[in-house]
Nucleic acid binder design. Structure first.
Length: 495
RNA sequence: GGUUCCGUGGCCGAGUGGCUAGGCUCAGCUCUGCAAAAGCUGCUACAGCGGUUCGAAUCCGCUCGGAACCUCCA
């Protein structure tokens, strides 16, 4: 197996993946701010890292996957003067902030479960790490990298860079350019420099979410929580940090600065960013009003949707593109994905029923064996190449072809040999279900379906073709089709 | 304005110098009571213009078009 390569945003190239402490891997992904429902764009990012989590595990790494919940400190609007997002929703809905947090955390979990994402190893919250954050602020002040101003504390970018830091290295920004281009925002007077960012904010009297601190009542800055929680659970330096492309600047840039400030080490070895989900070429976002809620998708209730699409259809759709490319969301693309997914999952149903039958007379088919071996290896090669799920799926479809041929009696198991047959069977299931996380979405009334199928066989036996056609119509109404083959009769999901 | 990225066949979408994915659609064939399913066959593209090279979708330049970030956002 060739070594895994991952694209590192820091170096802007694919690098061989070498964990600090193999076989252990530490991975941190920025989770959601739980002030609203997650939309499909958010799901794409978490799906990307779910796939990475699954694949790393698949190839033998012991992964500690930390994904946080931001439940305080993320402000509304520009600069550092906006309201806290959670606090704002709490006021609007006349609820406790923690009720807001709980509601949208539940939604987040429900949605990810629906899409068959595995839960992280640790899911820490910002409010649960107040002590750590206050300690971090103290440390940064002690080291001269942060200063207090009116009960707030800011990270001093110029000091950081003067001391050898390189603010801007992740996003490719030049400090001087940033200084020149920064717009004038309210409340900048507290800062020595407009680029300085808050690590602790003074709470105004009407602010609900507040904690006592050496600088008065306040709350932590958004960027700080990730630095504190990632290093607490993964160490001062860890392997992988992931998130959406739109977090690269300033959020992740600030994390690097804080991490270096706190521990004198670059906190992260491999920075990975997943690209945006677009709608008609534009980023899906709440502010543009073009975002889909998963629920709207499953019911087809969004005005832009022509029909409902299932969770696995969407998962398949997203995996068919590379995580670093933008992916455009359209009905045509979704419909095509639905058919592809159903064909794959029909193969999944079928492959489990295949059994090996020795046959001395069977010809060993070298060409087919070679193609199967190439595809089995190709699946891994693709994922090793910066998690190229699109090519991995292409290889899976090659395997699917052989699964179908075996099932249809167009190819005899003995033609492949027992070992390769077994490998094809087990790998097809493992790749589909465990690595790509694509599962069968069972029909509602599967027991009844089997009964109808028995009836179909009887009608067919008696050549009662009118009845036969009626049963077919019934199946079609259930979104199923009858596969009437020479050697057996079965059903499948309609594609 | 600055930084970065993208423009692939009817649609979606991989692919960083030669071996030219895959899915969907369409046409034909095999099989079938008729279908469906499955397999097979066919359609073969790289925004435009120049350049480098024996050879370019892939490297360089320009033009046109689109996007992301620079401000909260996965």
């Amino acid at each position: 197996m060739q070594p895994l390569k991952l694209y590192n945003t820091l170096s802007r190239q694919k690098e061989p993946f070498e964990p600090i402490n193999s076989p252990y891997v530490g991975m941190y992904v920025c989770g959601p701010t739980v002030y609203n429902y997650v939309h499909l764009g958010n799901v794409r990012t978490f799906l990307t890292f779910d796939t990475l989590f699954r694949y790393l595990t698949h190839i033998g790494y012991k992964v500690r996957y930390v994904r946080n919940i931001t439940d305080v400190g993320h402000l509304v609007g520009d600069g550092d003067e906006g309201e806290d997002k959670i606090g704002r929703m709490a006021k609007l809905e006349k609820l406790e902030p923690m009720e807001i947090v709980q509601r949208y955390t539940n939604d987040f979990h429900d949605v990810l479960t629906t899409f068959n994402l595995r839960p992280p190893s640790i899911e820490p919250t910002a409010t649960g790490h107040m002590v750590e954050q206050i300690e971090a602020v103290k440390t940064l002040i002690d080291k001269g990298l942060a200063y207090e101003s009116n009960g707030s504390v800011y990270f001093d970018i110029l000091k950081y860079n003067a001391g050898g830091g390189n603010y801007g290295k992740l996003s490719g920004r030049i400090l001087d350019d940033l200084l020149n281009e920064t717009r004038d925002l309210d409340g900048q007077s507290e800062k020595r420099n407009p680029l300085d960012f808050a690590i602790w904010k003074n709470a105004s009297p009407e602010h609900i979410m507040r904690w006592p601190s050496p600088w008065g009542d306040g709350f932590p800055g958004w960027h700080l929580e990730c630095s504190c929680m990632s290093t607490k659970y993964l160490g001062a330096q860890f392997d992988i940090h992931g998130g959406g492309m739109d977090l690269k600047f300033p959020h992740h840039e600030c994390e690097i600065a804080q991490g270096n400030g706190l521990t004198d080490k670059d906190p992260v070895r491999y920075w990975m960013h997943s690209n945006m989900l677009t709608v008609n070429g534009q980023k899906m976002s709440k502010s543009l009003g073009n975002s889909f809620l998963p629920g709207e998708l499953f019911t087809g209730s969004h005005p832009l949707l022509e029909q409902a699409y299932s969770p696995m259809t969407v998962r398949f759709f997203m995996l068919q593109s590379h995580y670093r490319s933008t992916l455009d969301f359209s009905n045509d693309a979704l419909k095509a994905a639905q058919k592809g997914y159903r064909r794959l999952v029909n193969g999944l149903r079928v492959v489990k029923t295949l059994t090996y039958a020795p046959d001395e007379t069977a010809q060993s088919d070298e060409k087919k064996q070679a193609e199967i071996r190439t595809a089995l290896q190709g699946f891994h090669d693709a994922l090793n190449d910066d998690l190229n799920t699109a090519v991995a799926i292409a290889n899976l479809f090659t395997l699917l072809k052989y699964v179908n041929m075996l099932y249809m009696n167009q190819l005899q198991p003995a033609g492949l040999g027992e070992e390769l047959f077994g490998q094809l069977k087990s790998s097809f299931v493992d790749y589909t279900e465990n690595v790509l996380g694509l599962l069968e979405e069972p029909a509602d009334s599967q027991g009844f379906v089997e009964g109808m199928l028995t009836l179909y066989r009887e009608y067919k036996e008696q050549k009662l073709y009118d009845k036969v056609d009626q049963v077919r119509t019934y199946f079609k109404q259930q979104g199923l089709v009858i596969k009437d083959m020479k050697h057996r009769i079965d059903w499948a999901y309609e594609e």
